[in-house]
Amino acid sequence: MPSLREIKGRINSVSSTLQVTRTMEMISTARIRKALDRAQKAAPYKDAITLMLANVASAGYGSEHPLLRVHPKEQHVVFLLIASDRGMAGGFNIVPQREVMHAIEDLESRGVGADVITCGRKPTEFFRYRGKQPLLSFEGISSEPTMDEADRIASYIMDGYKSGQIDRVMIYYSHAKNRVDQQQVVEQLLPITNEQLMMPNRPRTAEALSMIEHKQDTVFEFDPSAVEVLGYLLPAYVRTVIYHALLDSAAAEHGARRRAMKSASDNAQDIITSLSRTYNRERQGSITTELNEIVAGASALEDNN
């Protein structure tokens, strides 16, 4: 059985950890509102530009555009993984990292080349440690993403897709449903599919997707030409989707860390409570033992007298 000093030291150690987890929980709680607001404010722009793009593409003008054309043979797939710079957020980082790694291994086992672009220090370290050097990596801005990051990613993948060096681009990130819940999202970024265009704010479950009513869009006249408009809209669409995913992931990160730190704080408090009971029980037993020794000693003195 540990001594009273050891138990007291353990209580002090867990109490220090509790202070850290509570502080991190409060920080994430304060930041998640701002992050959610940024993601929600960006969503209408994403929906609007997707609807504009759908109106042009549905008229048949986008059939020959390089970003809408499906390559006949898939030889190289790129995964865009958006995660976090820091840990202590439960499975926020490790779950999508493992999913992307399994997808890459599956493709490579079939003779298809696969690479990854990482946003966040944690996924960058994850793949470098496993010998998979990211094509691009961004660190230090997972909580406060910028449009510059989205522009660089979009330019790289669009140039690669147009040149034929990239045949498909998948994006993995966490969607912040609210301040508490997060949901893993896996979407095809390139080539852009008709489903993405016709349902810009589409539900994320198969059941909800089946309830969507498909309606014929109104026919529009374009000035300048629809082909020229499409040339501006498609790159803007790709950049907007990436930027919104970065913002959404930042909000999800704060929510995941808040939940993880709350769970850690609750567990630490339970440990402190249990250790305090053990400490009090052992202390009481020690006092009782000392009293018994004093009484026995007093009785022995009386007998000698």
Rank of each mutant, 00 (worst) to 15 (best):
T273H: 10
K73T: 09
N178Y: 10
K122L: 14
I32P: 09
A54S: 14
Q196L: 13
G62W: 05
I94W: 00
F126K: 05
G160L: 08
R38Y: 01
G91N: 06
Q75C: 09
K122N: 15
V70A: 06
E213G: 05
S263V: 00
Q216T: 08
S142F: 02
K34V: 07
I157H: 01
T193D: 02
I82A: 04
K41M: 11
E105I: 06
E195Y: 15
T17N: 14
D106I: 06
D115I: 08
S13Y: 12
L197Q: 04
D148F: 14
N201S: 15
R281E: 15
T289W: 04
R239E: 06
G60M: 04
L233R: 00
V20T: 11
G62H: 01
S210P: 00
T193I: 11
A260V: 10
Q19G: 09
K215P: 00
L234G: 02
V295H: 13
D266Q: 10
G131K: 07
L4I: 15
N292K: 10
I117E: 08
V241T: 04
R239L: 08
I242K: 03
E25C: 13
M211W: 11
N178D: 15
N201Y: 15
S286F: 06
D159P: 02
P235A: 01
L233Y: 02
Y61N: 08
A250L: 05
D148C: 06
Q216H: 09
L291R: 15
S3K: 12
N305V: 11
T124H: 11
V70H: 02
V20Q: 06
S163I: 03
Y161N: 02
Q284A: 15
R69P: 00
